[in-house]
Design a protein around this nucleic acid. Sequence first.
RNA 1: GGUUCGGUAGCUCAGCUGGAUAGAGCGUCAUCCUUCUAAGAUGAGGGCCAUUGGUUCGAAUCCAAUCCGAAUCACCA
Length: 595
Amino acid sequence: MSVVQQIKEAAAKAIHQLYDFPIEVSAIAVNATKPEFEGDYAVVLFAFVKQLKKSPDELGNEIGAYLMQHNSNLIASFNIVKGFLNIVVANNYWLQFAQIAFNNSAYGMKESNGNRVMVEYSSPNTNKPLHLGHLRNNFLGWSIAEILKANGNDVYKTCIVNDRGVHICKSMIAWQRFANGATPKSTNTKGDHFVGDYYVKFNDAYKVEVETLVAQGFTKDTAEKEAPIMKATQQMLLDWEAGKPDVIELWQTMNSWVYDGFGKTYQTIGSDFDKMYYESEMYLLGKGLVEKGLQKNVFYTKEDSSVWIDLTGEGLDEKLVQRKDGTSVYITQDIGLAEQRYQEFNAAESIYVIGDEQNYHMKVLKLICQKLQLPGANGIHHLSYGMVELPTGRMKSREGTVVDADDLVKAMLQIAQQKTEELGKVKDFTETELNELYHTIGLGALKFFLLRVDPKKKMIFNPEESIDFHGFTGPFVQYTHARIKSILRKNEAASTTIVPGLNDTTLLPLEKDVLVQLELFPTIIAEAAAEHDPSKIAIYVFNVAQIFNSFYSQHSITNAESEAKKQLRLQIATNCAQVIKTGMKVLGIQVPERM
RNA sequence: GGUUCGGUAGCUCAGCUGGAUAGAGCGUCAUCCUUCUAAGAUGAGGGCCAUUGGUUCGAAUCCAAUCCGAAUCACCA
């Protein structure tokens, strides 16, 4: 149990016992003591002054004395300042903690709890390569899955590929017309980029046709509908749905190019999935559910025989779930997919990593699932993340301001290489080792940059700042790890038992600061899982690195004042490396032994 | 117009289940490598926490209103 939790429980018990006043543990407020006062944690007394009709000083003294008497292993002393009961945690407690963490290679991880959780993320379209926004999605999804695993859940990572629809047909039409049989191989282009290029070519051609029609006197609306290339695209979609062999074949070929490209990107950025779903196989799902919904009177039919749900009672609108021609819409598919996945994975909780532009859609989806009483409906969570914008504003494909994922990763690796070469610390590395290191650092910088911000918030990607390797960055944390490892290599392993001769030794402030920080790790991991928020861990891991660096600059480990101190500091350093490694791992970031 | 989210240092962000003098990083200025990795450390400077009112012992945090910004409200996906 965490120190804070122990203090809360002890304080609640004290108040109950001393004043015969039962109080919820959660009602006790405990903060870190400000550095200028003596103590580690402070119990806020104001809340009870009124209820217990005693002055803060009186309360503090009585509660403090009780706590010391009944929790002598935890609490060494206390003092009261302006309504705050400052508690000094016993040095022995911290020393013991150092041993416990040192001997637990899974420190921060929880035992399996048997809960099954499905995480859906990435979900690309097959007409365009991945961009910066997809990277945020992929890093968030992968990380939240790891964080949930670390908290003992069984996690299933899934991905739904949007591989059908008009947008795909656009690329196909453009390829037919403009490619002259070119392939990714013949042009030496990555498959997803190759197909994306034809999507762009479609739009260029379409634009020209519309302009021509407008010049001939058509209205813009008519021109957009009547442009020959658009009509051809719509015909192609119909042919696809009818299963016309040559269209299906082209569709399969072009999609296979895209998957080839995506596969490479996923491998580079470390995304993986337990199960891939393809919309082409799923878009008919949910038809049965429409029937079921009608029977349950959750849905109703309008006179044109389209099917709707009325969500005005929930403050939303009426929503179409089936067109009058009997075809299903986007949301119907999603309902079907939700049910199907529940049957496959039996996950009580499903987390959908989807941009905040779909907040409304996800709200509707959950509501409908609940009204249909689908199992697992209450466990649907939308991990809604904000858009990634550039300093100049939103990325727009039409204006060519989209930051391509592959380009960005490549640029990060190059900067990692350049920086590493400048510093010249790993001149003895082999070619393979060097490439591995550039990958670790470059990708680490990128992942950390995208994960260190609260997912809910939109963020600004500043190319200048993101490639900074100093301060609140991935490489800073990685560097700290490498630094610790370097020290550990130069010393024999630390003692795994209680270091003799330390019981009476006062911990130095910086030694204690590091231990206090390390002790928070399990709490932070749990918080990050509960809030679906990897940024909590990024911030935490940075704090650990920072505090260690302060400690390191002040106190020598190798040449400590005594052998006992040396052992303790080796333990502390080892624990820091361990916590940094584990914390970074759940963010999807490797840490090097040297850099 | 309705709904939702946001507005904290020059910039990027923490802090938001109310608690002590609002914190980091970047950038600026100044120190520290013959001693464990300087991708580091230390210090200085930088703030009407959008505005106004309310709730109370106490508000960046909760409530209301206002201003500014974003997303969304498709028989698109």
